[in-house]
Amino acid sequence: MKLLKAAMALIMAAALTQSGVIDENDSESSGSVSVGYSVSASYEVTIPANVEFTDADKNTAIERPLQANNVLLEEGKHLNIYVKSQNGFRMVNNEGYIEYTLHANGSLISGTDNVKILTVSPGDKSGWVLLSFTSALSGDYSGFAGNYSDTLTFTVEMV
């Protein structure tokens, strides 16, 4: 037991001595540390997944919001969101098609190219636009029964 105590005392003394060692050159040394943090621009966009018309929707607009959230842009840059219809705003199947219209905040969207529907300005953290879908079918469809569909692609870019 005495031997153990003596050994511990020696170890502690050595540790204290070591911690007390001062390098004379330390006071003269100098250096610099570069501190940096890179923040990437980022955002999240919530798009309508599907819009399904039924006979009950013939004369009714189906409304869906498109939202940009958690927007963090580079200084002076905007976030633009465009929409494009795969089939020129026609729901198609092998037998034919049914037309529909899309309005973004009341403006008619048409054609087969990308059309801008929302701009998020620098400094804004979010933005949204109301999309309104209306089937052009007013009476009974004279074609074939089946599922008719279209796909929308929403393109997002920071400019």
Binding site: S40, A41, S42, Y43, E44, V45, T46, I47, P48, A49, N50, V51, E52, A56, D57, T60, A61, I62, E63, R64, P65, L66, Q67, A68, N69, V71, E74, L79, L130, S132, V156, M158
Partner: peptide
């Protein structure tokens, strides 16, 4: 919900934005 003019209840899909 949200005063939207429809009787369909559907949750949109959220996608992440990556710029670089």
């Amino acid at each position: 919900e949200n005063n939207l003019n429809n009787t369909h209840t559907e949750k949109g899909v959220t996608v992440p934005g990556i710029t670089s």
